[in-house]
């Protein structure tokens, strides 16, 4: 058994079997991470570069930890402190790095499609760690892993994805993955943040009323409002957004049922999630972060095998 693809560019390219294989392999790595020695020698002959053209805390640290736990050699590249600031092109930068005998590239870029472009021009395996407003496949995989761990299955699960759908690569990857695995998806948020024709294109439902969406779902994956990507105002104020689409304890308690709250981080406290929910008993935000390392280990391990 192996993945049907040489790179992980997006969930869009994965088959159901690929996703299943990554999730079951991640379970085994999760066990590795509970051991007294949390490290295996699988990738000791592999060198990986983390190419981050955009800021990141969780994803970069999670990838680096996953790489080190697999005994890979790790190089870190941050655009702000590199020659990219002097105007070197992406392809030049990567070719220079590869000439130092690097086997895999983990990359984040603000331009959608940047890893797809690289995959066409270089021989190394590429893992997309987020490209613009396109995809963030490892986040969707760790979200799915966390849902499955908490609720036992993905098939038939009702998942609401709430907030800034328009600018969220997490949302797109999640929608692809959940639909492939047989979960039902409802998108909720203000009309200005939900792309047109999304229902037909991705086979999901759209709901503009937050409470109705929450009442319907088993899991609410709440997204960050991405002000840095909004070049025109799409709602009048953060305060107004919070009033209409923010989730607080009182709202959750009025549902008459328990739902699981997820967030890919970083959380805008008091905007999409209030602290009493983010730190509350229904939140699995920190479990998501923990599972991220195991899921990324699985992805790197499976892509390293020829």
């Amino acid at each position: 058994m192996k993945l049907s693809t040489k790179h992980l560019l997006g969930i869009k390219d994965l088959t159901r079997d690929d996703i299943q294989l990554i999730l079951t392999t991640a379970e085994q790595f999760k066990e590795v991470l509970q051991r007294p020695v949390k490290k295996v020698p699988s990738l000791r002959d592999i060198t990986i570069v983390n190419l981050f053209y955009e800021n990141s805390t969780r994803t970069r640290m999670s990838f680096e930890l996953a790489e080190r736990r697999l005994s890979a050699d790790v190089l870190n590249f941050a655009a702000t402190t590199s020659s990219a600031a002097k105007g070197e092109t992406l392809l030049d930068t990567v070719n220079n790095i590869l000439s130092m005998k690097v086997d895999m590239v983990v990359m984040r870029h603000s331009a959608s499609g940047a890893p797809h472009f690289l995959a066409k021009h270089i021989p190394a395996a590429i893992v997309n760690a987020g490209d613009g407003i396109n995809e963030h496949p490892t986040q969707a995989l760790l979200d799915a892993f966390s849902m499955k761990e908490k609720l036992g299955k993905l098939e038939g699960l009702k998942v609401a994805i709430i907030g800034d759908i328009m600018h969220s690569r997490v949302a797109l990857s999640n929608m692809y993955l959940l639909r492939k695995m047989g979960a039902e998806v409802t998108i909720a948020g203000p009309p200005t943040l939900i792309p047109k024709y999304i229902e037909e294109a991705l086979d999901v439902r759209v709901e503009y009323n937050l409470k109705k969406a929450l009442q319907w779902c088993d899991v609410a994956n709440v997204l960050r409002i991405q002000l840095e990507r909004q070049n025109q105002p799409l709602f009048s104020s953060l305060r107004e957004y919070n009033l209409a689409y923010g989730i607080n304890r009182r709202l959750l308690e009025s549902l008459g049922k328990e739902i699981v709250i997820m967030h890919p981080g970083p959380i805008n406290r008091g905007v999409e999630l209030d602290s009493d929910v983010a730190d509350g008993p229904f939140s699995i935000v920190l479990n998501q972060v923990e599972n991220g390392v195991a899921v990324r280990m699985a992805v790197l391990y499976l892509l390293a095998g020829e």
Binding site: M1, K2, L21, T24, T25, E27, Q28, F29, E31, V32, R35, P36, V40, P41, S42, L43, D45, L70, Y301, L302, A304, G305, E306
Partner: peptide
């Protein structure tokens, strides 16, 4: 014990991992 991640032929063929269950030192 599953030894998949400790194999010396990771690059030659990919093996599917089974579960390890050693809840003691």
């Amino acid at each position: 014990l599953d030894i998949t991640f400790y194999r010396d032929d990771v690059r030659k063929s990919l093996h599917i991992a089974n579960s390890t269950d050693i809840p003691f030192s």
